[in-house]
Amino acid sequence: MTKWIFIEPFDTVFFRDGKPFDAGNDFVSFSIFPPSPSTFYGALRTYIIMQYSNLSNFRSDTKITNVVGTDANNLGSLKIYGPYLYKKELSPFLLFKAPLDIMQRDRIVINLIPSSVSSGLTDLEANNNLI
Rank of each mutant, 00 (worst) to 15 (best):
F33N: 10
K3H: 13
L94N: 13
L100C: 08
L121D: 14
V68N: 04
N25F: 00
A43C: 05
A126W: 15
R107Y: 12
R59D: 01
P92A: 11
K79C: 06
N111L: 03
F33E: 02
T65M: 00
A23G: 01
P9Y: 13
L44H: 08
V117P: 04
N73K: 09
Y47A: 06
Y86T: 06
Y52I: 00
S119V: 08
T62H: 03
N54W: 07
Y41H: 12
S29N: 06
V117W: 14
D17L: 08
N111T: 11
G76Q: 08
I64C: 00
G82Q: 09
F58T: 08
D61E: 04
Q104I: 10
F27M: 07
Y86R: 11
G18R: 13
D123N: 14
E89L: 12
F21W: 10
N127H: 13
V28Q: 01
S53Y: 00
L78Y: 12
K87T: 09
I110C: 00
K3E: 12
L130E: 03
A72G: 15
P114D: 15
F30S: 11
V109G: 01
P92Y: 08
N57A: 07
N73V: 01
P34K: 15
A43M: 14
R59C: 07
F30K: 13
G76W: 07
D17V: 06
A126H: 15
D22N: 06
D22F: 09
A23D: 08
T65L: 00
I32T: 11
Q104E: 11
K3C: 04
T2C: 09
L85E: 15
G42I: 02
P34M: 14
D11E: 12
V109Q: 10
S119R: 11
P83I: 02
N57Q: 09
S118D: 06
R45M: 00
K79V: 01
E125A: 14
K97W: 15
D26E: 10
E8W: 00
V68S: 05
S115C: 08
D71R: 07
R59F: 09
T46S: 01
L95M: 15
Y81E: 09
I113P: 00
F21T: 14
S91G: 15
S38H: 03
K88E: 10
F15D: 02
S29M: 02
E89W: 05
T70W: 03
S31T: 12
R45F: 03
N111H: 06
S56N: 12
F27E: 03
I48A: 04
L124Y: 14
P35V: 13
F27K: 11
G24T: 09
P83V: 14
F10C: 08
Y86Q: 02
I102Y: 09
N127A: 13
I113D: 06
K19P: 00
